[in-house]
Design a protein around this nucleic acid. Structure first.
Length: 957
RNA sequence: GCGGGGGUAACCAAGCGGCCAAAGGUGCAGGACUUAAGAUCCUGUUGCGCAGGCAUUCGUGGGUUCAAAUCCCAUCCCCCGCACCA
């Protein structure tokens, strides 16, 4: 141990020693059933590891180290993710020498230009970044078992994925289906988020299309509120719009031209037959397929051809636009459409009852907002009000027949489903915002992708299993459990095959590549196999291999025969698997909750028995840089490598852990890291001084109050740290194990304590070892130990908790503060200070009062009675009532622990103050005298009578 | 729209019914040390106060309670996710 702290020298030294001693390489230990299998999502290899990874991985490493020190056999492996499209895309950009890509990878990812020239293919990219990632993780001291690393593009891994999908396929978890996607008609490709120029917030909304009949034609009306079909009084057609007649499958529909163009991309067969003029429609009567009543088609200007089918069903009781349009027709000449009746007298049909409005909410809303007509912007506002209130508080009335009494918020799916099965409705997809423009400039549409492979996550029985799994799991922090449950509920079928990118092909349909989130769900089990990869060729990893090793199906003999793998090896792998599985903890950034972590659960429950389902998930937030969001592709970006290079591993670790808790985002600020560096340096220096201070070698002798106080404090710090780590509150853990303990030590040294320093140091480095392993090992070595990672984590020793010492120190601290405050206020240089401890009768009063409080019997009357019956106290009858009143008030706001201390602990304030006398005198630069109010001695102002228990009176002159 | 998370002193951030004028850190101010700077340590950092005190504060407005930053109701504002993309 050198006098000057050199993080890089120390860190390289210990990383080398750890690797040489292989202390993080874990294998099943038959003598230790306490195993702990912790995993972290493997990083995606399209860039260098950054501060976000650093946070998630460091949290995992801390837990791994902590568990190891608690005596668990810990397995902490790591792999790399490379499947999918981004790496292929990156290779193309690099080959093209795209200036932006070159800049980003040179400047942000810190890859020298000459090196960038050598990583042109996806394979080279994967090779390069996996090497860099491993080096970076080693440089920060993660306690990973590197024998188990792999990359998802490895041929062996592809066999694993093949097996898995065959299995899911056979269990009917992978099915064929169709799904709407954002589609660029120009590129003829689905459009991803980052390919969108405009309208990136647009989501796909499914409208219900209700088929009104006009002779042999169908007029479909798109609606988000299919229940309102019961209140339709007419249809709306805009005479300005262009309408067409089209053949849809075996039906004939009339829609706007725009709707026709959209329908062409659905999974329906659509053929254009010809134009239809609005005049052909308006004035005709159509049949409502649900109520079988006939309603008129009327003209309205608000109907937009680009929205829905371009034909709108009118529900004036509940839709302000419909009501307004109907009202606008009053007195208009409609004879040219052959309409002779007075349409404004068409009766409204109410079907939703809502507390805020009367029978016709649309009418109330229009009147309330004084909307003029259908072109008034306020119509939009009125619509919002009505829709929101009806959705949240509305209930269907008798008008809706068998649906009466249902909540509006629940009806949509049920009714749509019913109507579709009757053949009188369909689904129509539409963007929530328009237009949506692709990067190429084309307007995007919604396309039904047909014959797509799906993981049918929406299957209720599968979800049931996941709920069951979740119920048995620990979610950290616990508040997120409800989030997980909601997301399981929300998850729909997921397309799991793609045409492009790296990956494994679908074994039964080789045109398709397995999508890259689908191949990352149960790979934790692969870490167990990965250790043995040099023992077999990819071709040997037939399904029988995995069936036996991971599922225990079939016999080892059969598996050996099929694969040509040694039967002993197979049995060994099976044993390893059963030892390590299930995953005890998976820690991850919060971005993976709605995708990867969900799939992780779904696939585990689908493939493994419940005894092997994951035990816990822990979530953490992101990392920003100086308040700015980090971005891999735009910057700013801080790589793990450069952070360690600049600050060293321990400082980086400690800082990133201490700056935020759990799901909160952490903000990396250079100024704060700098201060962490100073703290660590102080820690190092303190340790160095303690070890090399010759005067302290002999530490025997009577422990003073202050020594007992220090040891007592240490126990609390241990308790808090342990408790925090058990809840994975790394920030709180660091706070206690480092910063607060550091402050305790400062105070201890300032108070002249020394006898307990070495003892504290020995515990302290163990407490800190999971966070800053290198520096702790360096100090441990100097203390004569070896590999602190393998030492035991400190346990609080209740016998060292000393309430008396703590009270003594509290009195000392408070008294010092009081003296200083008085000096500051009266602005004199004190020449003489006298402290008076409280009269003993006051202590008796306080104790009696606390005892009464504990029995809930504390009031003035009871207390006075008790006091007056005590002859030793009655002597002070004159002073008692006032003091008793004060005591009662004080106790009201006192916490239980302090109360207990005050009655249980018997210690002498005088001796406590006497021990601190010299210190206090030095601190205020004035000699201090101490006496008791029982015999005050020198007391010119009678201050001693003000002395209270725990609060000595102070006289200054 | 749906779902989740937040609003605490100059800033970051703990606390989530009473030792709370509110941990810890940063910044700022003063002091000690030093030839000086830096580092380190101490003190202060809502207002008032020449004796350890008082008053007012935890987005805003109500309420419950002996007691509220903490519980309830209402309200305003901010952030994140909503999919075929890792």
């Amino acid at each position: 141990m050198k006098e000057r702290y050199d993080p890089h020298e120390i860190e390289e030294k210990w990383q080398r020693k750890w690797a040489e001693a292989k202390i993080y390489e874990s294998d099943p230990d038959q003598d230790n059933e306490k195993k702990f299998f912790i995993t972290i999502p493997y990083p995606y290899l399209n860039g260098n590891l950054h501060a976000g990874h650093t946070r998630t991985f460091t949290i995992g490493d801390v837990i791994a180290r902590y568990k190891r020190m608690l005596g668990y056999n810990v397995l902490f492996p790591m792999g790399f993710h490379a499947t999918g499209t981004p790496i292929v895309g990156l290779a193309e950009q690099i080959q093209k020498k795209d200036p932006e890509t070159i800049r980003v990878y040179n400047k942000l990812h810190e890859i020298p230009l000459d090196v960038l020239d050598t990583i042109q293919t996806p394979e080279q990219i994967v090779e390069y970044f996996s090497r860099e990632a491993e080096a970076a993780m080693k440089s920060i001291g993660f306690s990973i078992d590197w024998r188990r690393k792999f990359t998802t593009t490895d041929p062996h891994y592809q066999k694993f994925i093949t097996w898995q999908f065959n299995l899911l396929h056979s269990k009917n978890k992978v099915v064929k289906g169709a799904h709407p996607v954002r589609w660029c008609p120009n590129d003829e490709n689905p459009v991803e988020d980052h390919d969108i120029l405009r309208g990136e917030d647009a989501t796909i909304i499914d409208y219900t299309l209700i088929k009104f009949k006009l002779d042999n034609d169908i007029l479909p009306c798109a609606t988000l509120r299919p229940e309102t079909v019961f209140g339709v009084t007419n249809l709306w057609v805009n005479p300005e719009n262009h309408h067409v007649r089209i053949k849809v499958n075996d039906e004939t529909w009339i829609v706007s031209k725009e709707a026709y163009l959209k329908l062409k991309f659905t999974d329906k067969n659509v053929e254009l037959e010809g134009d239809v003029s609005a005049e052909e429609l308006i004035g005709k009567k159509v049949k409502n397929p649900v109520t079988a009543s006939y309603v008129l088609i009327l003209p309205a200007s608000f109907v937009s051809p680009g929205n829905g089918s371009g034909i709108v069903m009118s529900v004036p009781a509940h839709a302000p636009y419909d009501y307004l349009a109907l009202r606008d027709l009053k007195g208009k000449e409609l004879a040219k459409y052959g309409i002779t009746e007075d349409v404004s007298s068409i009766p409204l049909i109410s079907l939703i009852k809502v507390p805020e409005y009367g029978k016709y909410p649309a009418v109330d809303a229009v009147n309330e907002l004084k909307v003029k007509d259908q072109n008034d912007p306020k119509a939009e506002e009125a619509t919002k009000f009505v829709y929101r209130r009806e959705f949240h508080g509305g209930v269907l009335t008798e008008t809706t027949g068998k649906y009466a009494g249902m909540a509006v918020s629940k009806i949509k799916d049920v009714l749509t489903h019913d109507l579709i099965s009757l053949g009188i409705a369909d689904v129509f997809y539409e963007f929530s915002e328009q237009p949506v423009i692709c990067r190429c400039g084309a307007t995007c549409v919604i396309k039904m992708v047909k014959d797509q492979w799906f993981l049918n996550y929406s299957e209720p029985s599968w979800k049931e299993q996941v709920y069951k799994c979740l119920a048995g799991m620990q979610i950290i922090p616990p508040e997120l459990r409800v989030d997980f449950e909601n997301k399981v509920d929300w998850l729909k079928d997921k397309a799991c095959a793609r045409r492009k990118g790296l990956g494994t092909r679908l074994p039964w349909d080789k045109e398709w590549m397995i999508e890259s989130l689908g191949d990352s769900t149960i790979y934790m089990s692969y870490y167990i196999i990965a250790k043995y990869l040099d023992k077999f060729k990819p071709e040997q990893l037939k399904d029988e291999f995995f069936n036996y090793c991971l599922l225990g199906e079939g016999t080892p003999e059969n598996a050996a025969a099929k694969t040509g793998i040694d039967i002993g090896v197979l049995k060994g792998i099976r044993n390893d698997f059963m030892y390590w599985y299930p995953v005890d903890l998976r820690t991850s950034g919060k971005d993976l909750i709605p995708n990867h972590l969900l799939f992780f659960l779904f696939h585990h429950v689908a493939i493994f028995p419940d005894t092997l389902w994951p035990r816990a998930i822990a979530i953490n937030g992101f990392v920003s840089l100086e308040g700015e969001k980090m971005s891999k592709s735009k910057g700013p970006l801080l790589t793990l490598k450069s952070a360690v290079k600049e600050f060293g591993a321990d400082i980086t670790r400690l800082y990133i852990l201490s700056t935020a808790e759990h799901v909160q985002d952490a903000d990396w600020r250079a100024a704060d890291v700098e201060s962490t560096r100073k703290q660590i340096e102080r820690f190092y220096k303190t340790a160095f001084d303690i070890i090399h201070d010759k005067n302290n070698v002999e530490e025997a002798g009577e422990l003073k109050f202050i020594d007992k106080w220090m040891l007592s404090k240490l126990q609390y710090r241990i308790q808090e740290t342990t408790d925090a780590l058990n809840k994975m509150q790394t920030r709180r853990a660091v706070q206690n194990a480092f910063y607060l303990l550091m402050n305790d030590m400062k105070w201890y040294e300032r108070r002249g304590g020394s006898a307990a320093r070495k003892k504290v140091l020995g515990t302290w480095i163990r407490l800190m070892a999971p966070f800053t392993p290198h520096i702790c090992d360096e100090i441990e070595e100097e203390l004569g130990g070896k590999f602190i990672s393998l030492a035991n984590y400190p346990e609080a020793d209740p016998s060292l908790i000393d309430k008396g010492a703590e009270l003594a120190e509290e009195i000392t601290g408070n008294t010092l503060r009081d003296i200083e405050e008085i000096i500051r206020l009266i602005k004199i240089k004190p020449k003489r200070i006298v402290l008076y401890t409280a009269a003993s009768w006051k202590k008796t009063v306080l104790k009696k009062a606390i005892l009464m409080k504990k029995e809930n019997a504390l009031d003035m009357k009871n207390l006075m009675n008790a006091l007056m019956s005590d002859p030793t106290i009655r002597a002070y009858a004159k002073e008692i009532p006032k003091f008793a009143q004060k005591v009662i008030t004080d106790i009201q706001g006192m916490d239980a622990e302090l109360m207990s201390s005050l009655i249980d602990v018997d210690f002498d304030e005088i001796s406590a103050l006497n021990e601190a006398r010299e210190f206090l005198g030095r601190a205020v630069e004035c000699p201090i005298e101490i006496s008791s109010a029982d015999a005050p001695g020198y007391d010119p102002q009678g201050k001693s009578r003000q002395a209270n228990p725990m609060r000595p009176a102070i006289y200054i002159e």
